[in-house]
């Protein structure tokens, strides 16, 4: 199941675990990323907590946690080479995996068609 947020994150959800990243649209707006700060593995995050920080040449932006959950794994590759996020934001440029506290809550997020309509 692929879901999106108004904060331009995508979630690929399987078996109650969401792989979370930022959308192609977000990456286009941010420009070249030069720094990514990811959450600690094991961290318990609540919806709308700041989960990660990305910095482009231009500015720093927070990446908010879309749902309550626990961080299972983070993508260290993008810390070492933030350009991976620019090159493949919805694939190799994933940020972290979140074990969802209430998987059913994901149903309320946007599907791809709704997100694409939002960003025009």
């Amino acid at each position: 199941m692929l879901k999106y947020t108004e904060d331009h994150e995508w979630l690929s959800i399987a078996d109650g675990v969401a792989t979370v990243g930022i959308t192609s649209h977000a990456v286009e707006q941010l420009g070249d990323l030069v720094f990514v700060d990811l959450p600690q593995v094991g961290a318990a995050l609540a919806r709308n907590d700041s989960a990660a920080t990305v910095e482009s040449v231009k500015a720093a932006s927070d990446v908010y946690c879309p749902l309550d959950g626990e961080v299972l794994e983070v993508n260290e590759a993008i810390v070492n080479d933030p350009a991976i996020v620019n090159a493949d934001p919805q694939g190799a440029g994933w940020f972290y995996k979140l074990k969802l506290a209430n998987p059913a809550e994901a149903e309320a997020l946007m599907d791809e068609a709704a997100y694409l309509a939002l960003v025009g």
Binding site: G31, D32, V34, S56, V57, K58
Partner: peptide, 11 residues
């Protein structure tokens, strides 16, 4: 503020 190549490539 930038053109299509972006800040990094323009720099």
């Amino acid at each position: 503020v930038q053109f299509a190549p972006g800040v990094m490539k323009e720099h």
